[in-house]
Each structure stands twice: as C-alpha cells, then as structure tokens.
Design a protein around this nucleic acid. Sequence first.
RNA 1: CGCGGGGUAGAGCAGUGGCAGCUCGUCAGGCUCAUAACCUGAAGGUCGUUGGUUCGAAUCCAACCCCCGCAACCA
Length: 481
Amino acid sequence: MDRKKLFITTTLPYVNAEPHIGHALEFVQADTIARYFREKLGKENVFFNIGTDEHGLKVYTTAQRENMDIRAFVDKYSQRFRDFCKLFFVEYDYFYRTSSTDHHKAAQEFWKRCEAKGDIYKKKYSGLYCLGCERFITEKELVDGKCPDHGIVPELKEEENYFFRLSKYREHLLDWINSNPGVLKPKQKLEELRAIIKDIEDVSISRQRKNLPWGIEVPNDPEQVLYVWFDALTNYVNVVGFGSDEKKLKEWWPGIQLFGPDNLRFQAVIWQGMLISAGLEHTLRLLEHGMVLSSDGTKMSKTKGNVISPFEQEKKYSAEIVRFYLLTGILTYADSAYKEDDLVNMYNSRLVNNFGNLLHRVLHLSNRYSVEINNESTVEEDFKQSVSKYVREIEGYYNDYEIAYAGESIDRLADWGNKYITEREPWGSKVSAKERENILNNLSYLLQLVIHFYTPIIPSSSELAKKALYDRENIILFKKI
RNA sequence: CGCGGGGUAGAGCAGUGGCAGCUCGUCAGGCUCAUAACCUGAAGGUCGUUGGUUCGAAUCCAACCCCCGCAACCA
C-alpha cells in the first residue's frame, strides 16, 4: 500500500455513562497506532478521530432521570471523555461530537444520498411498547415479561419508521469480504461476520420525534428523527470532509476503524452497506479489539461488582503503567482478563528490570568512565545488523497493528541488550578504553531504538528516557512496584 | 438443536499426525557495572471430558461439559 495518508478512528462512545476500561483499551490502542504512524509517515499524514455519540433514547432518558438539560448533560459527559483522553495520553487530531451542527448537516446529507439511491423506504414496525417508558423495548430488556422500570406488561404496538435497504447489499458485502479477507482483524472473526451478513435484513433508521425529540431531523419529514446508529456511523466520513469537502474526503477515506466485539454487526455490516449506498469505499481495515474481562475471566458487570475502573487503576498505578498493560500485557485482538498481578509482573519485568535497568547500566558506566556515547556513525556494523533483525520484526508488527506483539518484540530487543552488556563486560580492566567506548556506544544506539519504539506505547516515559540518554543523566526511570 | 470464538504448567500464550514448547512467575547455584541483569540447573501438564480413527492424536472424527461474545432497534 503506497498511500501516504492514514485515517484512524475509534468508535464514538455513547455518553450515557462514565468512561470504562473498554473505552480506555480502544482509545490507547488507536492512540498508539496514530503515534507510530505519525512518526513514520509524518504528522500531517495521520488523522486520528475520536469523539462522542450524543443522541438516542438512552441519552435522553438518562438526562431526564438526572434532571438535567439535555444539552448540558451531553456537554458534561462529552467533557468526561475528553478529560479521560488527557489522563491517558490520548492525543487525537479531532474530537467529534454528534450533537454539533456540522454533524447534523453531514448526517442528513448522507441520508439524502442513500435516499437518492432508492435505499430508504417507510414501513410499519411493530414491537413491544411500554406505556410507562413511552417507548419500544426489546424482549431482552424484559424481566418476567414486564418492563423492569415500570413493572407493567408491554403491549404490541405499531409505528411507522424509515428503513434502510441493507438486504440489497447482501451479495455485495459477501463478495467484498471474500475478496478482502484481510480487511477484518482478527481473522477468526470472519466466520461470524459471514454468518451475520447472510442473515441481514433491512434495518430501521428513524424514530418518531414525539417519542424522541433529541435527534437529527429526517430530511423532509419533521415527524421523524434519525435513529442514533445511522446518525453516529456517518461520523467516520463526515470528519474527513463528506458532504463538505470532496477533495479532503478523497485524501483520507478509506481509513482504519477500531471497535469492540459488540460492534462487529454495526461497523462491518450496516456501516459498510451504508457506504456502498452512498457511493463510498469500504473501510480499509476493521480492527476488532478484544473485550477486557474481569480478573476471573468473566464479563464485568455492576451487579457482580467486578468492574475495573480506569480511574482507580490510574490512581493506583499511574496512567502509563495502565496503558502499558492494556497495550502489551493483554492480547490486542482477543478477550483477556485484566489482572493486577499480571500488570505488576509485566511492568517490573519489562520496564523496570529490562529496559529501565539497561538504560541505567549504560548511563552509569558511560559516566563513570567518561565515555562518548550517542554517536550513530561509529556504531559497529555487526552490532547494527544484529539489532536490525529486531527492528524489522517490531516494524512488521506495528505496520500490521499488532501492538502487543510489537511490545513483546521491543522487550526482546532490550533483553538482547542486557545479554550483550553482560557478555562484553565493559567494566573493570578486561576491556580496553576503546572497546569500552564501542560497547557503550553500541548500546546507546540500541537504547535509542528501544525508546523510539516504546514511544507510541509509553509516550511520557519514553520522552524522559530520551532526554536522560541524551543528557547522560543517570536516572531511575521506572521504580519497582 | 440460534450464530461464532475458545479450553495446553501457577498466569498468559504457541503448537493442526511423529520425544509437549515459549514468556512471566517460583526454587537452587554461579556471576556482579546495575533498580539488578545474565548464565546454569530444578520443580510444575491426566493438552476440558468420554469414546472413535491411526503404528502413532494436543492435533483428525463424534458426543458431551465449561468459559466468552453476539443474537433487529442493546454503544
């Protein structure tokens, strides 16, 4: 792929609750990818989008329950996500908000495109309607056949809504994934995706305004608002110029999308169908990260009381250590249990004992023997070659968005450095002054690479390490916990 | 029989017909420039269960058990 620009986006979290550990995972993964490619392709060639999804019934009713003005409510929670990003060193290029007027316009434009294609039609929908909630509720929500909030049996009710002709694109979507099986990571999920596509039916994409006043008006029908999914999904192209700047859109789209396992249907099927309808290209890569499970390997839930809070973890260990664990201590593309013991082990063994200790050894010896380091031109050729093997491996993983594997590989490089220094013994009288300088200079080169490749994962510590190496300041970068 | 993924050492994983491995952790010895690392060795497995195919099964087949996610308006 010789395209230079890279657009990367997370899904937009729904703002009816506080950020959770799953958001943290997705954000820091996307941030790491963005940081790596900014370095590789140039800052101006990467565009990293993040944001909040602010419409929909859940948001509306939660705001009412909290007795807040809807606008103030979404502002508050959207800000929580921004703060969250800041806390975990997530540097986005754009923070998208679906309540913005630009988004409203672009989403309506998207609707019109699909409509012009003949893919939107009106149809009666019948479902279970709770008079207490004044809304349709799903069978799954029911407790003993009753609405959990009002304790009454919902009645069957009909409502007329707009539908998107997704079924029209069934074959098209199957052809697409069959001819591009690499579009989805991890590949084990392809079967699931095929199964979902085979079963697709048209989807409802609007709600009656009288039930849900908080939303984007359907073009030419003030009685209806866009269903939140249809509205929110369009952000991925709107943010890079859809409906406003065709040239910009061409430059950036298609891009790569990160999402969680609960989102496969929406990102890889409905959204892809919408893209065809609007005459746009499919997403370049769909990266489905794993689910963060509680320490016993089961799903976190409030009722079970096993929820891990990213804020508490940050307080306990610091944002970078949490970041490091989420990125390299658990699997990038499979469900993983979040275990604090593993977090501590991983940090101690990789950052404290391996990377941190090597940095300390090299700086300490360079200072003690007043040796020149950081001179790349005099690094020995066979040392460079040994190191380049690791470099290729690390770059290969990063280029394939395999963050955890890249992290392991960096760890192996630092480990090799520790073995090298132990073997060569650049201390005492066994080596000449010249040899000592060569060895330590070689290692400073290796450390620069380790720091460089760790930067997307632990940006702040890497910055400190870089400075310490350059200034030959003998610091304890990571303290053992 | 709704769809899909998974079950291998204390933990996390690799291994798709040929002596059960890797990383971390644990224990012992050596070494020491270092937050210590490195080297050597050790302990630790009924490969989810049962049955089948095969000279030979973690691997192929069947059934079952357990875990995880999804299941049309659930972010």
